[in-house]
Simulated scan of single mutants.
Amino acid sequence: MTVRVSGKVVTPNGVIRQGCVEVVDERIRAIAEYPSVRDGHWIVPGFVDIHTHGGGGHTFTTGDVDAARGAAAFHLAHGTTTLLASLVSSPYDLMRAATAAYAPLVREGVLAGVHYEGPYLSTVRCGAQNPEFLRDPSTDELADLIELSGGTLRMVTIAPERDGALEAVKLLVSHGIVAAVGHTDATYEQTLAAVAAGACVGTHLFNGMRQPHHREPGPVFALLGAPNVFCELVADGVHLHDGTLAFAAQTAGPDRAVLITDAMAAAGMADGEYELGGQSVTVADRVARLTRDGSIAGSTLTMDAALRQAVGAGVSMVDAVRMAATTPARAIGVDDRVGALVPGRRADLVVLDDDLRVVQVMRAGAWL
């Protein structure tokens, strides 16, 4: 079956103002200019979110399969056609159970993999991570989880200053798993040591990190300055001022800057009381904070809103789309299949109106 979608097509090389994406079955067959097209919607690749804990009232953090399906479906409706299910710092048994439970969802294509955000994180920079579960990295523990996952585990966030962190990074990288630096009080030098060991992602840059100082630049400058590190940015206007977002996007460039949601179950839901990693979270005016101390606890963001925020902060449409789809796909090694409107890739498309709001979503050649 052949489907043609016409409009302003955003490709990795620019915008085809009068363009058409031709889809055959599950794949993009061709992209061409159609002079007869007038004032069409934006056509962009399906978004790739490499850091999200849930949404639509559902969470990834408990290992519940039905909840994971619900969260994935919620984000799919907002244009995210590829995502990682992010756990928070948890007991070892929960990590095992969730990893095993989500393996079938990865095989089905509902999830692209699992991300452990913790528990190998800094107690000083734990943010909304439950301090009860934080601990030093264990290569024995990780080796067991890697074997159990059977390819399901895609990324692990680690604070490089913790004992055993560099060994853990090397172990992950040797198995093709992305090692990320985050929730860290590391120095500049400690961060670069993790990068040298193979870490290639900065988890929600600026947030949960030692603040930059001109005499101790810390992890932010180290990660921004490392040419092989992808820098996650939570573009919700809360985690980052728009000026900071624009600065980081310009400094890293669209080939290294990655938009993420860091969303929790409250995304798309009413204000109220929620739970994250065994801790109470209060959502007010769409901002999620720990009830006990007011720390930011993830977000209520969706990727379409992150795209709008980035464009509103001055990032060009082409660069913002790369940051929302193409670059995150590269960060987790799925860019040969998704993340760009290129012939041969899976036909994941998002149709946006001129206000960059979702009109339609296609995944693997099928409209939702």
Results as ranks from 00 to 15, higher is better:
Met1Tyr: 15
Met1Ser: 15
Val5His: 05
Gly7Leu: 04
Thr11Asp: 08
Asn13Glu: 12
Gln18Val: 04
Gly19Met: 07
Val24Ser: 15
Arg27Val: 10
Arg27Ser: 11
Arg29Pro: 10
Pro35Ile: 05
Trp42Ala: 00
Val48Ser: 00
Val48Ala: 00
Ile50Trp: 10
Gly54Leu: 03
Gly56Cys: 09
His58Thr: 03
Phe60Cys: 01
Val65Met: 00
Ala68His: 05
Gly70Val: 08
His75Ile: 00
Leu76Ser: 04
His78Phe: 14
Ala85Asp: 02
Ala85Glu: 01
Leu87Arg: 03
Val88Lys: 03
Arg96Thr: 04
Ala101Lys: 05
Ala101Gln: 10
Ala103Val: 06
Pro104Cys: 09
Pro104Ser: 08
Glu108Thr: 05
Glu108His: 13
Gly109Leu: 07
Tyr116Phe: 15
Tyr116Val: 01
Tyr116Asn: 03
Glu117Tyr: 01
Gly118Ile: 12
Arg125Trp: 05
Gly127Trp: 08
Ala128Pro: 09
Pro131Tyr: 09
Leu134Glu: 04
Asp136Lys: 10
Pro137Ala: 09
Ser138Asn: 12
Ser138Val: 08
Asp140Pro: 12
Glu141Ile: 13
Leu148Ala: 06
Ile158Met: 08
Glu161His: 10
Gly164Gln: 12
Glu167Asn: 14
Lys170Glu: 06
Leu171Tyr: 08
Gly176Ala: 07
Val178Met: 07
Gly182Thr: 10
Gly182Val: 07
Gln190Gly: 11
Gln190Met: 11
Leu192Asp: 00
Ala194Met: 10
Ala199Thr: 04
Gly202Cys: 11
His204Phe: 10
Leu205Met: 12
Asn207Thr: 11
Asn207His: 08
Gly208Val: 04
Gln211Ala: 14
His213Leu: 10
Val220Ser: 03
Gly225Trp: 03
Phe230His: 14
Glu232Asn: 11
Leu233Phe: 03
Val234Ser: 03
Val238Asp: 05
His239Asn: 14
His239Glu: 09
Leu240Asp: 04
Leu240Gly: 11
Gly243Pro: 02
Leu245Cys: 02
Leu245Met: 12
Leu245Asn: 04
Ala249Thr: 02
Gln250Trp: 15
Ala252His: 05
Pro254Glu: 07
Leu259Val: 08
Asp262His: 13
Asp271Phe: 01
Ala288Gln: 02
Ala288Asp: 00
Thr291Cys: 09
Arg292Thr: 13
Ala297Ile: 04
Gly298Asp: 01
Gly298Arg: 14
Ser299Lys: 13
Ser299Met: 05
Thr300Glu: 06
Leu307Asp: 01
Arg308Gln: 11
Ala313Ile: 03
Gly314Tyr: 10
Asp319Lys: 09
Met323Gly: 05
Ala324Asn: 01
Thr327Leu: 05
Ala329Gln: 04
Arg330Gly: 07
Gly333Thr: 06
Arg337Gln: 12
Arg337Leu: 09
Leu341Met: 12
Val342Tyr: 09
Val342Ala: 08
Val342Leu: 12
Pro343Phe: 13
Pro343Ile: 13
Arg345Cys: 11
Arg345Lys: 15
Arg345Thr: 04
Arg346Cys: 09
Ala347Thr: 01
Leu352Tyr: 04
Leu352Met: 07
Asp354Thr: 11
Met362Cys: 12
